[in-house]
């Protein structure tokens, strides 16, 4: 007699048929697996972006404050008004400065981690870079406000080592200076760099790790010293990682509205403008137009990076 288990149960039969179907037509399985994430990406992600873009082509009636649902470029024209143009310029300058500083600070750290750190030190590196990301962003920003305040530890320490006048001299620099570090662009910049630095270090380290050792040896073998190898071989090969990191730091700074609100001289940044325009002002079209700016800037940035050959080594 046949054992009972070999009798095909209806459920098992369906499973077998499905297996056969998926095996014969792998496209069906692929479509089933990809449908949920594609729906998410298409509807929630790209869809909302398109809705945003759409809104930016509407305008607001200056008298009634009602959104006029007609296609117009008037809202984009408003971006060129001095008060709005200033916000864009300020934000882009800050994002560029933050990105540059992050890259300069991150490179030695990432280079050490990728080339020299082993075992325990590698763990220390990852922990050191990731640990700040585990605590709340707001807590960190408020902590920095206290650190940078006039009564804070930085001023105290500067006075303690007799560098108080140096700090005052730095703070008296027009535009970037201010009353105290926490109410100046220097403070905003410092906190931005602190908060986004890990996003620069990690992709940079990953790309440096992928540079084969034999390539650095080949460069030395052909007569190049350390600096020449760094400039002609290491940096170009690590460029995709540097670009990836700079996309993070640049776009995160472009969109942030909390740090400049808490630390700085309360001058407007794009994020803050969007926040107040869509909230109290109720000017959704202008908020949308502002929000499109970072996207355009990133596209231009990537196009330039590509033109410069940043992705050739990918």
């Amino acid at each position: 007699m046949m054992p009972a288990s070999s009798q095909p149960t209806p459920a098992r039969e369906i499973a077998e048929r499905l297996t056969a179907l998926f095996w014969k037509r792998p496209g069906i399985l692929l479509a089933l697996l990809l449908a949920p994430p594609l729906l998410w990406l298409g509807v929630v992600y790209v869809g909302s972006l398109i809705a945003l873009l759409w809104q930016s082509f509407y305008s607001i009636d200056p008298f009634s404050g009602v959104v006029v649902r007609e296609f117009t470029l008037k809202t984009y024209g408003e971006l060129l008004l001095p008060q709005n143009y200033d916000i864009i310029l300020r934000t882009v300058t800050m994002a560029a400065a933050v990105t540059l500083a992050s890259a300069v600070l991150a490179f030695p750290i990432a280079f050490y981690a990728a080339r020299f750190a082993k075992g325990r030190w590698k763990a220390v590196f990852y922990l050191g870079v990731m640990l700040p990301l585990w605590s709340s962003y707001l807590v960190k920003v408020y902590a920095w406000k206290l650190i940078l305040a006039k009564e804070g530890i930085v001023t105290w320490a500067a006075n303690g080592i007799g560098a108080g006048s140096l700090l005052d001299a730095v703070l008296s620099i027009p535009v970037i200076g201010g009353n105290s570090l926490s109410t100046s662009f220097i403070g905003t910049f410092t906190v931005f760099v602190y908060v986004w630095l890990p996003y620069m270090i990690l992709p940079m380290q990953a790309s440096l790790e992928r540079v084969p050792k034999s390539m650095l040896e080949a460069s030395a073998d052909l007569g190049a010293g350390g600096l020449r190898t760094l400039w002609s071989v290491t940096l170009p090969l690590a460029l995709p990682g540097i670009i990836a990191g700079s996309i993070f730091t640049f776009s995160l700074t472009l969109g942030d509205y909390i740090i400049p609100q808490i630390i700085g001289n309360s001058a407007n940044f794009i994020g803050m403008a969007v926040y107040s325009l869509q909230g109290t002002a109720g000017n959704i079209p202008l908020a949308a137009a502002f929000a499109v700016i970072p996207i355009l800037i990133m596209l231009v940035y990537l196009a330039i990076a590509r033109r410069l050959g940043a992705f050739d080594a990918l």
């Binding site: 034999s214 040896e217 080949a218 030395a220 052909l222 170009p236 090969l237 050959g309 050739d312």
Partner: peptide, 30 residues
Amino acid sequence: NRRNVNTVFQDYALFPHMNVRDNVAYGLMV
């Protein structure tokens, strides 16, 4: 980099971001 010997590496170690001519000319550029 100060030895007058040169190596052909096992994995060739050609620089992927340079074209063939720049690869060959690398030692001279240095």
